[in-house]
Design a protein around this nucleic acid. Structure first.
Lengths: 168, 168
DNA sequence: TTTTTTGCAAATCGTTTGCACGCTG
DNA sequence: CAGCGTGCAAACGATTTGCAAAAAA
């Protein structure tokens, strides 16, 4: 283990409590590794991938294997504390579920991710599902393009080629 | 090569012509393999993956390697004749671009994919981009859930777990 | 003590690539 | 005949897994 679960002041009491309940409900164990990963996730600004989280933990002295990082992120997603997205890349992006659900504008030039939430858009989706007698559980909307800083000076053909490579 | 490009009546003259122009423009070559793949793609009902397309070609007597299938699908995507999606799976799905753009409802139980197009939803996205000074080139919207046939009798917790595994 | 978790390294799996040979233009 | 394209098999890269040792309940 990384450190005794009781020796550090909890940085995110609410999230820790929620994770503990989740674990107990499924007879899973509360380990130092799991708590260290939870803490690291909520310290992060926004989107990150498993690899960089693993690197950060290693840098911070926590010797947690990549396998455990993946396994724990998966638990956190199931628990609802973390969201997992693809954002057009070959690897998954994660984010702490601090605020409510939102969708993404992804800049294909600099990689910046802008978040947005539009109740009318959500309503529209609900109505589409109702029309088709489809029961929705999750949706994923990303808009790929160029952010205000990056737009201009690109060749349409080049952009088409890049968009074609996205994992979308 | 598979067969002389000239010995078969073109099944999709419009698409073939478009692909030929695309190839010529970039000084690429019109080969039997490329034409056979184009034909196979447009014979398909809807969404398919590279593996099953490769299997079908092999079954039809065309001995085309997996590598060539991937390379050609990539060209067709860049040409705009084929669209590539992820639909929550680990592998890419492709579809012939017969009709106009549309989004997808994906049943996480039976895998059925329903297509929909809503101009108001597209407009809404455009307006979001305008507000953020973001220049969109592509978007991807999938709604995951249960289709009319599959809904009912599922445990919320089990569904959450499944959704968490999606490559979204 | 019983059960779950961990780290490690090997395995997976869809996809891509280097290379020598074969075709197209 | 000069480039491209192709097949093959090996390489890739993100993620997952089997297993024996280690920690939590």
């Amino acid at each position: 283990m990384v450190s005794s679960p009781s020796d550090a002041a909890p940085m995110r009491p609410r999230e820790e409590a929620r994770f503990e309940v989740f674990l107990r409900e499924r007879k899973l164990k509360l380990t130092g590794e799991r708590m260290a990963i939870l803490a690291a996730v909520f310290q992060r600004a926004s989107h990150f991938d498993a690899e960089s989280l693993h690197a950060e933990l290693k840098g911070a002295g926590a010797d947690i294997s990549r396998a455990t990082v993946y396994r724990t992120l998966d638990l956190l997603v199931q628990c609802g504390l973390v969201r997992k997205h693809s954002l057009g890349a070959t690897h998954a992006s994660y984010e702490a579920a601090q605020d409510e659900h939102h969708d993404h504008l992804v800049c294909i030039q600099c990689g910046k991710v802008l978040e947005f939430f539009r109740p009318d858009l959500e309503k529209l989706q609900e109505s589409i599902c109702r029309e088709r007698d489809f029961q929705p559980f999750h949706h994923s909307l990303q808009i790929f393009g160029l952010c205000s800083r990056c737009k201009g000076g690109f060749d349409e053909k080049e952009i088409q080629g890049r968009v074609a490579q996205l994992h979308t």
